[in-house]
Amino acid sequence: MSRGFKSIEHTADLALALWAEDEAGIFEVAAEAITDNLTEGATLGAEARQRVTLRGLDHEDLLVRWINEILLLAILDGFLTRRASVRLLPEAALEATLWGEAEASARVVAELKSATYHHLELAPTPEGWRAQVIIDV
């Protein structure tokens, strides 16, 4: 299965559909989707690196926390994630390495407030994994 993301219709906010070959891939694609929306698809460097560890209540909650972590790195630190390598751990935890561009606040052109739990989906499919997440904008 290929991996990717697209926006789906939502009246007020941003709804994202994500797909990947496995669950960790969904998290990696989510990071790319967030950066794409923050920067309107800008091409970014990948020289800077960050490490993230997170724990959620369950895997759906972990996905929301992960997306919000990517957002906060952009908003507070000016770090824009170009790609991520995610390893899912037991008990709804993950560790990840992010490559991206540091001090890149100026490249953010759209405001995303937060990922929400509304109509949040994360599930295996016969071909791989898919997710849906609504972002408050």
Binding site: L57, E60, D61, R65, N68, K113, S114, T116, Y117, H118, H119, L120, D136
Partner: peptide, 27 residues
């Protein structure tokens, strides 16, 4: 304000479970 909401949702998800509040939508 965004961060206050985000932080509180985490605590409220746990509170909902703790107090047995059935949620049709986790939000």
């Amino acid at each position: 304000g965004y961060q206050v909401c985000d932080d509180s949702l985490r605590a409220m998800l746990e509170a909902s479970a703790k107090y047995g509040i059935k949620l049709p939508d986790r939000q």
